[in-house]
Design a protein around this nucleic acid. Structure first.
Lengths: 345, 345
DNA sequence: CTGTTAGCGCATTCAT
DNA sequence: ATGAATGCGCTAACAG
C-alpha cells in the first residue's frame, strides 16, 4: 500500500513540494503537464505525491484559472428513458471534453429558479430542459453564463436545441390518414411544452393537407394515470376515434393496455401511436408505432455547443439547432404484423 | 430589468461592496446570514448586488470554507429505470441537504478510476455503484474522502448500502417451486456483480430447502441481445426448463418476447420471472412477475449517509445497510391471470 | 529547467 | 454593527 499514514490533514501542493524537495510551481507543472520538467524531478514529485496520496483541490484550481470545468444540466425529472439518454449523451461528451457535469432535477423543488442560480455559481455553462421558465427568465439567466435551452421553443432570445417535431408528427399523421383512418385524436396538451405543441402542429398540418378539419387536442397529462383516465372515458363512448396519436409513449402504452384489457382490439378498432420509442414500445403487442428521437445525440451536441461557447469571448447570436427524428412503423398503427425487429436499445 | 450593463466582467464581492459603500465583510455577512447586519445597510447591499447581478463564486467559497458542498455519484451506465431512480433519489435528498451532485458514468470511459479520482477532487464525498473496482481499489479511494459503495458486496472495508437480494430471490424461487415447477434455470452471471451473486444465492437456497440439486447458472449478460441468444438456444432444445429466473427484467422481457414469437406459451410451458419491475414489466402479456427494489430510497439514503459522514470528524466503522425488497407476483410465473394492477411508476 | 511571487473571490478572525 | 487583514490551494507570469 503506497498511501502512507496521513497526518490528519489531506496533502496539499505544499506538502508534496516539501516532500519532493522542489517548489510548488514544479509540482503544479508535473500535474498540469503545462511545461517540461526534468524526468528525474518529475519522478520524485510523482512518487512524493503518490506517497502522500495527493490530489489537487478542484476549488483552488478553479479559482486560479477562473474556470470550473463543469457543465450544468437542468432536467424537470428523470422518469422514462428520455432524460436518462439525454444525460448520458451530455455527460459522455462533456467528459471527453474534460468537463464534469452537475445535474439538478427541478421537479419537487420548492424554488427551481433559485436552484438554477445556485447551480450557475459553480459551473461554466448550463443546459436547461423544461423547468417552466419563460423565455425572459432564461434570457435573464443567460446574461451570467452561456445557457442552452433544450427541447424548448426555438427562436427565443437564448440559444436552443431540440429534436424535430412538426415534420415527423405530420409524417406519422399522414401515415394514419393514408391508411384510411379518418377520425384521429391527439392526446396531450400543446400548452404543456414546445415539443408537444410542435407535435400537435404537425398533426394539424397533415389534416389540413388532406382537407380535413383539425380535431381539438385532448388536453391530458403524460402520465400513465392520464392514459388510464382517458381510456376509461373512451370506453364510455365519450370519445370517438379510429386512431389515437399520443404525445408520448408512456401515454400510448397506458392507453393501449387499458383498451386491450377491456376488449378493444388494437389496431383493428383503433390505432395507437406514440413518441420516444421507449423500451416497452417494442415489447408490447401490437408493437408500438412511434417516433424515435436522437436523444443521446441531443445531449452530446448540447455539451459540445456549450463547450464551444466557453472559448468564445463574444457571444455569437443565438443558434437554434433542430435534430432530425425518425418515424418507427410497427404494428399498433395497423400497418404491419410482420415479426418485430429486435435490436439493442 | 434590474441587471444593469455589466462592464465586461462578472461582479465580485468587491464590486458589490464598492457599489454599496461597505466592506466585503459586510457583503459576505448579508449573503451568509452569518451575523446580524443593520437593516438599512443590508438593503443597500442587496440592491447593489441585484443591480450588478452578483452571484458568489462557488469555487472561491469552497476554497475559503474548505468544503465543496457537492456529492459525487458514480454509475456504470444509465440505461433502464434503475439508475435513473437512484439518481433521482440521490439528487433529491442531496438538494434538500444543500448539496449539489456531480454524476459520472463509467461505461465507455477509457479510464474509470482516473475519472473517479478526478471527481473526488471536486466533491466532499462519493457514492460508487458498479464500476468494476475491487474492494481494495475502493478502500484506497476511501482514504481520501467518505465513500459509499452501492449495490456492491456488503461486508467489505468500505461502507456499503444495497437492496436485499438473497431473501427475495429465495422467496421468488420458492414461489415457483411451491407451484410445482421443478426444473428452474437461473439466467445471469453471479460473477458479474454482488447483486446477481446474491440473487443466485437465494435461488440456490430455495432449492436446497426443497432438497433439490441446485442448477448451475446460465452465465449470460443482462442485455436484450443476451436474452435473444438464450431464447434461440432454448428453442433448439439446448436447455430444458419449466421456469426461467432472469437476473433482471431486461433479460426476462427479451426472453419472454422471443419465446412467444416462436410459439412457446408463457407461463404454461415455461414461467419467466425477472428483477427490477421496470415499466415494461406491467405492460407485457403475461405481465412479468418480478422483484421491486426501493431504488429511490437507496439513492436518498446514500446521500443522507454521506452527508452525515461529512460532519463526523472520526470516521466511524464501515456501516452496511440492506434495504428490503418486494416480490411482485403477476402472471408470468403462472400464478394469477387476474387483471393486472395499474399504478404510477 | 526551476523557484518566487502575486493574485483568483470569498469567509473569517480580530479590532474598532 | 462594521472594517481590515489573513489565508484557503493552486496557476501563471516573471526571473533566474
Amino acid at each position: 500500500m503506497t498511501a502512507s499514514a496521513n497526518p490528519g490533514q489531506r496533502a496539499t501542493i505544499y506538502s508534496v513540494a516539501d516532500a519532493a524537495g522542489v517548489s510548488i510551481a514544479t509540482v503544479s507543472r508535473v500535474f498540469q503537464g503545462t511545461s517540461t520538467v526534468a524526468e528525474t524531478t518529475r519522478e520524485r514529485v510523482l512518487s512524493a505525491a503518490d506517497e502522500l496520496n495527493y490530489m489537487p483541490l478542484g476549488a483552488a484550481r478553479s479559482l486560479a484559472v477562473s474556470r470550473h470545468e463543469l457543465l450544468g444540466l437542468v432536467l424537470p425529472e428523470l422518469g422514462g428513458p428520455y432524460y436518462s439518454e439525454l444525460l448520458m449523451g451530455f455527460e459522455s461528451r462533456a467528459s471527453e471534453l474534460g468537463l464534469g457535469v452537475i445535474v439538478v432535477v427541478t421537479e419537487g423543488k420548492p424554488d427551481p429558479t433559485r436552484a438554477i442560480r445556485q447551480l450557475m455559481s459553480r459551473v461554466d455553462a448550463v443546459a436547461v430542459l423544461g423547468s417552466d421558465l419563460d423565455d425572459a427568465g432564461l434570457a435573464q439567466l443567460a446574461t451570467a453564463k452561456p445557457l442552452l435551452s433544450l427541447a424548448g421553443a426555438p427562436g427565443g432570445a437564448v440559444p436552443s436545441m431540440t429534436a424535430e417535431n412538426v415534420a415527423s408528427a405530420e409524417e406519422l399523421t399522414r401515415h394514419l390518414l393514408d391508411h384510411g383512418r379518418r377520425s384521429l385524436l391527439f392526446l396531450g396538451d400543446p400548452d404543456a411544452g414546445a415539443d408537444i405543441a410542435g407535435r400537435y402542429a404537425g398533426f394539424s398540418a397533415a389534416h389540413e393537407a388532406h382537407g380535413l378539419v383539425v380535431p381539438e387536442p385532448v388536453r391530458i397529462g403524460l402520465q400513465e394515470s392520464d392514459g388510464a383516465a382517458f381510456a376509461a372515458a373512451y370506453l364510455t363512448g365519450q370519445h370517438s376515434a379510429d386512431a389515437l396519436v399520443c404525445a408520448n409513449d408512456e401515454l400510448a402504452l397506458a392507453v393501449l393496455a387499458h383498451l386491450q384489457d377491456h376488449g378493444i382490439t388494437v389496431p383493428d378498432e383503433v390505432a395507437v401511436v406514440g413518441w420516444d420509442d421507449v423500451m416497452a414500445a417494442r415489447y408490447v403487442r401490437p408493437a408500438l408505432t412511434t417516433v424515435r428521437q436522437p436523444v443521446h445525440d441531443l445531449g452530446a451536441l448540447a455539451s459540445e455547443r456549450l463547450h464551444e461557447h466557453l472559448g468564445a469571448t463574444t457571444r455569437s447570436s443565438a443558434s437554434h439547432d433542430i435534430l432530425p427524428t425518425q418515424v418507427v412503423i410497427r404494428s399498433s398503427c395497423g400497418c404491419t404484423t410482420s415479426p418485430p425487429e429486435r435490436h439493442l436499445p
